[in-house]
Write a protein that binds this DNA or RNA. Structure first.
Lengths: 351, 351
DNA sequence: GTGAAAGCGCTAACAG
DNA sequence: CTGTTAGCGCTTTCAC
């Protein structure tokens, strides 16, 4: 026997296709009696309900949104901030009875057909660099889009904390304690795999919104506090890779003008930095202060001073924007909070 | 202007719709010259390629698979074994330029429309209990299905290690060291939230394939080693919840016939159990031996004896089965390995 | 190598 | 409350 469709059931029950369609998609449009009879026959015939594809083609909605992820999923799933973001998206999509299609974009490979073929009503873009080719593909498909943590695009809702203000405030707070030589452990600035000190030229060419905003905030904050530009060393340490954080931190601490405070762009980096500080025979915070970002699980236990932000909230708001058919559309500034704990203290007295 | 479709481009170029379709979907079917001309016009008109929905309806393929997860994503991502499984799925789907639709099914909520509306070519089922309603929905849609770690269904490829053999071998190994009283810390046996000692009646009603197979393996292994059934205590501790593991373990250790070996069904449970043992003032392994499952990150550092299995491999194979259009379809037995480390030793001399 | 015809299974819009 | 009409955008089949 062929496939069971609305028509099969309609013929069997002796009504029209539309009525059967209504029985499933607009149950209030027909009498209980008829609806139950139709559903009964459908169940008998093993009909699982209207084909979502055909329904989607006709109605223009498929009930799913896509999530574009920069990194390999292996990395994405391992990182607490990223997973919290996905959990937020899942909460909102779940509440809206909407699916969630993961579209990973491995750094090396080009986007390929994954985006072109994604059967979704909209796309959440998560931390892509400016001008990533995937963006153009989404644009070409004219899919509703929301970006979280970058890039910030004309006419596309952007969800993030006020990165610049947060970084500025944090930096001023650190400097107010008396710190005058800062080491910034930053995410990568561009998507080559370069690491090491970020000079002004490279800074100007930064392609990640969040990194750019935070670095700008740090530099502004430092300047406000009277700290010279050349007393702020910015180093790229890639994406939360402890193996990279350690040598960089140790090298800085052993230099002739070692930092007294380390501003890390994630708690993971901060925790690795703390290990490195200790490995150099120094204490946190007596000799070196350290701050992080995100306030992930484990930050509190480590007494880490950090910028708390809610990845869930970002994910949730992003999905809601795509899902709430009506709501207002525009940028969303998610709140942040600087959590002061033990790893921030005045620098040691000058020797 | 209306939407740009194949027809728009066909009219513009002066060829038929079919030819334009071929230019995108079967590029080798026409001359390079014509293909480039068509693609040029398409780009000019901002055409992003054939609509995946319409293509899917016609061709019967959409380029995505669904992943059914027992728990909320929050829990799923918190658990290293689950996460690795997803990474495996993602690797295979990524390689096949296929999307991955996450469908979380938290215990409380019923499947609802998530499955009915999922636009996918197939479904990976991950650790669902027997007869979970979601299974019927997938069946009703006649979607290709693969189950990983259960349930084991007639005619549906099943991917897992040889759980029974692994548990049997592990148990015999433990008993061979001289242990005669065992505590088994098991995942839940049914999806009520009952915890506590599993009697034979409840064991017989177990609804999770993996739990059932492991417990059967343990009991067989113990019997083979001459350990009496009543010297094996099985306790359900839910899903990797440390808060539950601790009191249960401590209670058992303080009983009149305390176990000398604890077999935990995951490394997470094992690590919590070790904490509990120490909290009772006992040493691992001198007083109590402990074994785990999975060999997650952290197991080696803790010196944990465990059953290593590759969650990635399971995810990868599952996705490949659904993705490789041709390959052989059947159950897949993934290899496991018992890793002997420090937490297993002979029991203390009898007092 | 290219085209015409025939739907895939469904729902929007409107008429009754 | 129910039915008719008219496609959604595409690919398959088969002819040329």
């Amino acid at each position: 026997m062929g496939r069971v469709t609305l028509q099969t059931i309609a013929d069997r029950v002796g009504v029209s296709r539309t009525t059967v369609s209504n029985a499933f998609s607009r149950p209030d449009q027909l009498s209980d009696e008829l609806r139950d009879r139709i559903r009964g026959v459908a169940a008998e015939l093993g009909y699982a309900g209207p084909d979502p594809l055909a329904r989607g083609l006709r109605s223009g909605r498929v009930g799913a949104i896509g999530v574009l992820l920069t990194e390999s999923l292996g990395y994405t799933f391992r990182d607490p901030y990223n997973t919290r973001f996905l959990v937020g998206v899942a909460e909102a999509t779940g509440a809206a009875d909407t699916g969630m299609l993961l579209v990973p974009l491995p750094p090396g490979r080009r986007p390929g057909d994954a985006i072109r073929n994604a059967v979704v009503d909209g796309v959440v873009v998560f931390t892509l660099p400016d001008a990533h080719p995937a963006i153009d593909l989404v644009r070409a498909r004219r899919l509703p889009m929301v970006t979280v943590d970058g890039p910030h695009l004309e006419g596309v809702p952007f969800i993030s904390i006020d990165e610049r203000a947060a970084a500025g405030a944090l930096t001023r707070m650190v400097c107010a304690r008396g710190h005058r030589r800062l080491l910034v452990l930053a995410f990568r600035v561009a998507d080559d795999d370069r690491t090491g000190v970020v000079d002004d030229e490279r800074l100007a060419a930064a392609r990640y919104e969040v990194t750019r905003a935070r670095l700008a905030g740090v530099l502004t904050g430092a300047r406000d506090a009277g700290v010279r530009r050349d007393a702020v060393t910015i180093v790229e340490v890639g994406a939360n890779d402890p193996a990279l954080v350690r040598p960089v931190t140790m090298e800085a601490l052993r230099s002739s003008a070692p930092p007294t405070a380390i501003l890390a762009m994630s708690d993971q980096i901060a925790l690795s930095a703390i290990d490195a500080v200790r490995e150099c025979g120094l204490r946190v915070p007596e000799d070196v202060s350290v701050t992080g970002y995100d306030d992930v699980n484990g930050a509190a236990a480590a007494g880490l001073t950090t910028v708390r932000q809610s990845a869930d909230a970002k994910g949730r708001r992003a999905a809601e924007l795509l899902t709430d058919h009506g709501g207002p559309v525009g940028d969303v500034v998610v709140p942040h909070e600087i959590i002061t704990r033990d790893t921030l203290a005045p620098p040691p007295p000058r020797r």
